[in-house]
Amino acid sequence: MNDQAKPAARPFRFGVVAPITSDLATWRDRVRRIADSGYSTLLMPDVPTWQPSLGPTLATAAALADLRIGSWVYAAALHRPDEMAWEAHSLSVLTEGRFEMGLGAGRPGIEVELGRPAVSAAERRARMRETVASLRTFDGPELHTPVVMAVSGPKSQALALEVADAVTFVLPVDDDRVETTRRVREFGAHRDLELAQHVAAIGDRVAPFMAPPDLDTAALRAADSLVILPSDPAAAAEEIQRRREEIGFSYFVFGADFAETLAPVVTGLAGK
């Protein structure tokens, strides 16, 4: 018999990945609407040459609206650890603690596509570890920048258990609910971290910058994948509550194109 008490459910919070896919005035209006809808965090992808630099863009967003900001996520394959840590610390200072650092290995091959030397999986993990260590040094005893680490295999999960404040799982699109539940529960048994869910598709649409645009949403539904949510807000809210109860996910991240559609979900569940 297991005598350990089940950890109390964490309150729901919701983030939005909001790349600049329009003119700046339209993007600024979108940032303000996201904040007004009750989302906790506005997030930016790390995609050099596709978007303005992550740090200045997030600082701009933080000045536009009173909400948290974050990277989703810094790609260790593309940056030096001390540079990532310094930028993250700077954003924490400039926003008075409203920044959270999303950190991951980076998509396989992304550095080669950008004309840079290939970086092995082991080196990517080493950079992630060094980044967090440098960030803690920069922060000192008076500041703690939260780190949300994107994890996939056992080695990155072990690293997150050591140094992260929260995790988001890089889920294969063919993982079904049973497999995902097994993976996440097994991870959560080792340490009580906040568990984040990257939701790439809503209904029949795929969020830009969160998955390949040709992602097969019908196949996701057929596989009972957790990468997708229904487009009906009531059904989405029911599914989100199920995922917290059965698996432990409490932080859900959507694409900005779905922010208004899912605003009723956020209004009903945020903070509860």
Rank of each mutant, 00 (worst) to 15 (best):
N2L: 11
Q4E: 12
A5P: 04
A5V: 14
A9E: 13
R10A: 08
P11S: 14
F12P: 01
F12I: 06
F14G: 00
I20K: 10
I20R: 11
T21H: 01
L24R: 08
T26Q: 10
R28Q: 13
R28H: 13
R28W: 07
D29S: 00
V31W: 09
R33M: 06
D36A: 15
S37D: 09
S37H: 09
Y39M: 02
L42A: 13
V47Y: 07
V47D: 05
P48I: 14
W50S: 15
P52W: 12
G55L: 15
T57C: 03
T60D: 01
A63C: 04
A63W: 09
R68H: 15
G70P: 00
G70N: 06
G70Q: 12
W72G: 05
W72N: 07
Y74E: 06
A75H: 08
A75F: 05
A76Y: 02
R80H: 13
D82S: 15
E83Q: 13
S90T: 13
L91E: 01
G97A: 15
G104K: 06
A105L: 09
R107V: 13
P108D: 03
G109M: 01
I110P: 00
I110L: 00
V112E: 15
L114W: 04
R116D: 01
P117N: 08
E123P: 01
E123F: 03
R124P: 04
R127V: 12
R127M: 09
R129S: 10
S134L: 15
L135A: 11
L135S: 12
R136E: 01
T137Q: 15
D139K: 03
G140E: 07
H144P: 00
V148F: 02
M149I: 12
A150G: 08
P154A: 09
Q157Y: 02
L159T: 09
L159V: 12
A160V: 10
A164H: 09
D165A: 08
A166K: 05
A166S: 04
V167N: 02
F169T: 04
V170L: 12
V170Q: 13
V173N: 05
R177S: 12
R177K: 10
T180G: 03
R182Y: 06
R183S: 08
V184E: 03
D192Q: 10
A200N: 03
D204E: 02
V206K: 11
P208N: 06
A211F: 02
P213K: 06
A219K: 13
R221C: 00
D224R: 15
D224G: 10
S225Q: 07
P230D: 11
D232Y: 10
A237M: 04
A237Q: 07
A237G: 01
E238R: 14
E239A: 06
I240W: 08
E246K: 14
E246R: 14
E246F: 14
I247S: 03
G248Q: 14
G248Y: 14
S250C: 10
G255F: 06
G255C: 03
G255Y: 05
D257N: 04
P264W: 05
P264N: 03
P264V: 09
V265M: 05
